[in-house]
């Protein structure tokens, strides 16, 4: 029961340099991991590879020993840094949520999503509110693993704390695997059990208090 990256490398084409090389990673369900690195070390690429948005040039991403499913709802869901790009701007937010599955009142309540918002269009809400919808949509899809790529970088710290507290609760309750991609060391320490520093290719010894 784990999400594994086996010696994966990625580049966009043969002419281009490697974005990511020979990376190994394993995350069991119920585990919380932070990927920490400054920009330029391929964190976002790694996140996309793990969620099946990109296919590794070399190596494999395995879920419970098998490749990620190509069709159907992916059990590994990715949350993006810019929520406004992950939502169809012409859809009302109710429809956005329903794309993830059946509306779940408990999740709406946990995020403090006010019901009138469901009838609004994305441009009428702020980034923080939209990010709640993106996370809620992923949770409603029944994901087993959640990969959060700098999801709160553009948000204010109060919204950041609100969203992360819900994610941490849900992840614990549903025994989900969680990867937090971030450049903020404080946040990494707060949300993850162990921290992998992609720039130095090592587990952050000082912060690792076991998984």
């Amino acid at each position: 029961m784990a999400l594994e990256a086996k010696n994966i490398s990625f580049r966009y084409s043969r002419k281009e340099p490697w974005v990511l090389q020979a990376c190994d990673l394993s995350l069991a369900r119920g585990e919380r991991l932070a990927l920490f690195a400054p920009s330029g070390y391929g964190k976002t690429t790694l996140a996309r590879l793990l969620a099946g948005y990109l296919t590794p040039t070399e190596g494999q991403v395995l879920l419970d020993g098998a490749p990620l499913p190509k069709t159907g709802v992916c059990p590994v869901q990715l949350i993006f840094q810019h929520p406004e790009k992950a939502i169809n701007p012409r859809w009302r937010l109710k429809r956005v949520l329903e794309e993830g599955g059946i509306l779940r009142e408990d999740i709406l309540d946990a995020f403090g999503i006010e019901r009138p918002w469901l009838d609004r269009f994305p441009r009428e809400l702020s980034g923080g509110e939209l990010q709640r919808f993106c996370v809620a949509r992923a949770l409603m899809s029944g994901a087993d693993y959640l990969i959060c790529d700098e999801i709160s970088t553009m948000l204010d710290v109060i919204t950041q704390a609100q969203i992360w507290n819900v994610i941490l609760d849900e992840a614990a309750r549903r025994n989900m695997g969680l990867i937090a991609v971030t450049h903020n060391r404080h946040l990494a320490r707060r949300v993850a059990g162990r921290i992998y520093d992609l720039s130095r290719r090592q587990w952050d010894a000082a912060d690792s208090n076991g998984a």
Binding site: G112, G128, E129, V157, A161, Q162, H186, R189, V191
Partner: peptide, 21 residues
């Protein structure tokens, strides 16, 4: 004060609600 308390290094405790539009 709420901003300070919500920082990951200072407690990570949010207050409820949203900034009004």
């Amino acid at each position: 004060q709420a901003l300070w308390r919500a920082l990951p290094q200072n407690g990570f405790v949010p207050i409820d609600g949203f900034q009004p539009y």
